[in-house]
Simulated scan of single mutants.
Amino acid sequence: MRFTDNEKATYLFCAQLSQTRTIPLTILEWNTIVKSLGCHKLQPEALLSMDSAALLNILTQATTSQKTKIINKIEARRKLGISMLELEEIIHQGYGIMFRSEMPQRIKKLTQKYVPAFFYYAGDPSILSYRALGVVGARDANSDELAQTEIIAREAATQGVIIISGGARGIDSTAVDSTLQNGGKAVIFPADGLAKWVKKREIREYIKNGQLLIMSTQKLDAPFSGSYAMQRNKFIHAPSDAVLVASSRISGEKSSGTWEGVKENLNLQWSPLYVIGNSEGIVKLKNDGKAKLFISLEDVYKVNTQGSSKILSKINQKIKDLVECAESEGMDKKTIEKLFLDQLDSQFKLEKKYHSEKPYQTPKSEDFEQLSIEGLVTKD
Rank of each mutant, 00 (worst) to 15 (best):
residue 147 A to G: 09
residue 243 V to W: 00
residue 365 S to I: 15
residue 87 L to V: 04
residue 22 T to G: 09
residue 34 V to K: 03
residue 142 N to R: 14
residue 351 E to W: 08
residue 297 L to T: 06
residue 166 G to V: 12
residue 347 Q to M: 14
residue 99 F to W: 05
residue 338 K to T: 02
residue 339 L to K: 12
residue 257 G to M: 09
residue 226 G to H: 10
residue 378 T to G: 00
residue 38 G to S: 10
residue 254 K to A: 07
residue 28 L to I: 11
residue 235 F to A: 07
residue 105 Q to W: 13
residue 370 Q to A: 15
residue 172 D to T: 08
residue 162 I to L: 12
residue 2 R to F: 14
residue 203 I to M: 12
residue 60 T to M: 06
residue 106 R to H: 10
residue 21 R to D: 12
residue 160 G to D: 09
residue 182 N to F: 11
residue 289 G to R: 06
residue 86 E to A: 10
residue 265 N to T: 08
residue 60 T to L: 04
residue 195 A to H: 13
residue 218 Q to M: 15
residue 45 E to H: 14
residue 210 G to I: 05
residue 379 K to H: 15
residue 150 E to H: 14
residue 229 A to G: 02
residue 190 P to D: 02
residue 259 W to H: 13
residue 219 K to S: 14
residue 192 D to P: 01
residue 174 T to V: 04
residue 309 S to E: 14
residue 298 E to W: 12
residue 250 I to C: 02
residue 173 S to T: 00
residue 351 E to K: 14
residue 196 K to Q: 15
residue 287 N to R: 14
residue 6 N to T: 09
residue 201 R to E: 13
residue 197 W to L: 05
residue 73 K to P: 06
residue 30 W to C: 08
residue 91 I to N: 00
residue 333 K to R: 12
residue 10 T to Q: 01
residue 277 G to K: 01
residue 353 K to A: 13
residue 290 K to C: 00
residue 84 M to F: 12
residue 247 S to I: 09
residue 251 S to C: 09
residue 362 T to S: 07
residue 27 I to E: 02
residue 7 E to Y: 05
residue 125 P to K: 07
residue 50 M to L: 11
residue 342 D to A: 00
residue 118 F to E: 03
residue 229 A to M: 08
residue 201 R to Q: 14
residue 111 T to C: 12
residue 84 M to E: 15
residue 246 A to C: 02
residue 98 M to Q: 07
residue 229 A to F: 11
residue 129 S to C: 05
residue 202 E to F: 12
residue 335 T to D: 00
residue 346 S to R: 08
residue 268 L to Y: 06
residue 131 R to Y: 09
residue 85 L to T: 15
residue 62 A to K: 08
residue 14 C to L: 00
residue 267 N to A: 14
residue 318 K to T: 13
residue 255 S to M: 15
residue 193 G to N: 04
residue 379 K to V: 03
residue 126 S to G: 03
residue 40 H to N: 13
residue 76 A to Q: 11
residue 73 K to M: 06
residue 32 T to K: 06
residue 88 E to H: 13
residue 319 I to H: 10
residue 227 S to W: 07
residue 238 A to M: 02
residue 116 P to A: 10
residue 154 R to G: 00
residue 105 Q to T: 13
residue 131 R to E: 04
residue 346 S to A: 10
residue 120 Y to D: 10
residue 347 Q to A: 13
residue 337 E to W: 11
residue 311 I to H: 02
residue 159 Q to S: 05
residue 326 A to M: 06
residue 234 K to C: 07
residue 352 K to I: 01
residue 92 H to P: 03
residue 137 G to I: 01
residue 127 I to C: 09
residue 87 L to A: 06
residue 69 K to R: 13
residue 86 E to R: 07
residue 316 N to W: 09
residue 43 Q to T: 09
